[in-house]
Write a protein that binds this DNA or RNA. Structure first.
Length: 403
RNA sequence: GUGGGAUUAGCUCAGCUGGUUAGAGCACUGGUUUGUGGUGCCGGGGGUCGCGGGUUCGAAUCCCGUAUCCCACCCCA
């Protein structure tokens, strides 16, 4: 038997219902916020991700499905959504057009990782990107949108918030931190030694106790933010407070993608295991410029759909549509025709085998139909059809021409 | 990528220290004194015990390899 590739799933039945319910709900919320749908290719030039997500990140460094295509192009399956949207934004010259452009998207992403619950090699994200708005109100709006989507789906969460600083304060802080790490390098764990060069801020949330005690005296980002970053961060907190969105400050929250600056946030769930991040995002004011566009402030987020699936509270669906069945073989043709006719306006399913009434009622109940409609010898003779409303438990025999 | 656990019917699992035709519940399907369901009763189909080797008279059971899933790390959505 040929099986799907490792870490790649089929989505069907109940999962598919949940999946589409989430997309529909999130789409509705995004549209209420004034965002427009954008679809970008699954396959992009590898350089796009190297330049945006960053070569030092794990995503680009070791998780990309990368290959040379028949035209000798170095391409890869997209590992995340932002880079493609930014590329499209620039390619369509919207950076030069100016103004505000707000997009949402959803689709598959690919990362060559070791699979685990909530971590697939092909997974799906719903994401949003906003271009041209510098105001921190837009950052707050992103968070409100995630909050609204999760609320509509009945999903509880914790929101973690941080500011990563901008090009005025982050490089200096980073340098200070690296020199601090070098001063204690002999005593820290192997992971931290590696992090020093890949993502130095990560050392601060190392789980090793010895490392933690050494880092007690490390420079703190909270003290290093420049005035602009600090006041934006304070403003963001106030807006969230005003709108009753609870958050916790996590000074160690670092996004693994290189393009983020200033606001960084992550929504986590305590109910889905160790892969607990259900949404993450932040501001990336420099990315458009990095990809050869005119400097444009931007902010966005992405949600991991598979991780949300089991958390979604689905609305109860009530009985719907018609079930038709015959009690005599002679009535089957009639049932098929009536079903075809009924389908022009309603959901209708029929059974091709003649059965007794009890079995038809069972069949109608099994597919959660609202009406069970049966033709037996009496109805055949009289030109009628027996119809029972399975919800109200009422029944009547009506003329077939009125059915 | 590192370490650990699991893998038996469509699903959830039982099967003790190797011993005759591998079980249960649910699901599916047929019937139910021949017109009333979701909640009765009786029956039926369905498993080369993940795959490949090995040990043994004999392996679902022990050993090795391999694949996949799960857990932790890592990372992230």
């Amino acid at each position: 038997m040929i099986k799907s590739l490792r870490g790649m799933n089929d989505i069907l039945s109940e999962d598919y219902e949940r999946f589409t319910y989430f997309i529909d709900t999130a789409t509705d919320v995004a549209q209420k916020y004034g965002f427009h749908f954008i679809e970008t290719p699954l396959l992009e030039e590898t350089a796009l991700f190297k330049r945006s997500v960053g070569e030092s990140s794990d995503i680009v460094g070791k998780e990309m499905y990368q290959f040379i295509d028949k035209g000798e192009n170095d391409v890869c399956l997209r590992p995340e959504g932002t880079a493609g949207v930014v590329r499209a934004f620039i390619q369509k010259k919207l950076d030069k057009a100016g103004g505000i452009h707000r997009f949402f998207y959803h689709g598959p992403m690919f990362r060559y990782e070791r699979p685990q619950k909530g971590r697939l090699r092909e997974f799906h994200q719903f994401g949003v990107e906003s271009f041209g708005v510098e105001s921190v109100y837009e950052d707050a709006t992103m968070i409100m949108m995630v909050s609204d989507i999760l609320k509509r789906c009945g999903i509880g969460y914790r929101l973690q918030l941080n500011s990563l600083g901008d090009q005025n304060c982050m490089p200096e802080y980073r340098d200070n931190l690296v020199s601090f790490i070098e001063s204690v390098e002999d005593e820290i764990c192997e992971d931290c030694k590696r992090r020093k060069s890949t993502n130095p801020i990560r050392v601060l949330d190392c789980k090793n106790e010895k490392c933690q005690s050494l880092y007690a005296n490390a420079p703190k980002l909270i003290n290093a933010l420049c005035d602009g970053c600090q006041s934006d961060f304070d403003k963001l907190k106030k807006v969230l407070d005003d709108n009753n969105i609870a958050y916790e400050i996590d000074r160690n929250l670092v996004r693994g993608l290189d393009y983020y600056s200033k606001t960084a946030f992550e929504f986590v769930s305590d109910n889905i295991g160790s892969q607990s991040a259900i949404a993450g995002g932040g501001r990336y004011d420099r990315l458009v410029e990095f990809l050869d566009g005119r400097p444009t402030p931007a902010v966005g987020f992405a949600m991991g759909i598979e991780r949300l699936l089991e958390l979604i509270e689905m609305p109860q669906h009530s009985r719907e549509g018609y079930y038709l069945g015959a009690m005599d073989d002679e009535a089957v043709d009639l049932i098929v025709s009536l079903t075809h006719q009924k389908r022009q306006s309603d959901k209708a399913v029929c059974d091709f085998k003649a059965k007794n009434l009890k079995n038809h009622l069972k069949g109608a109940d099994k597919i959660n139909a609202r009406y069970c409609c049966v033709i037996g010898t009496n109805e055949m003779r009289d030109g009628t059809i027996w119809v029972k409303d399975l919800q109200n438990k009422t029944e009547e025999t009506i003329k077939r021409v009125d059915f």
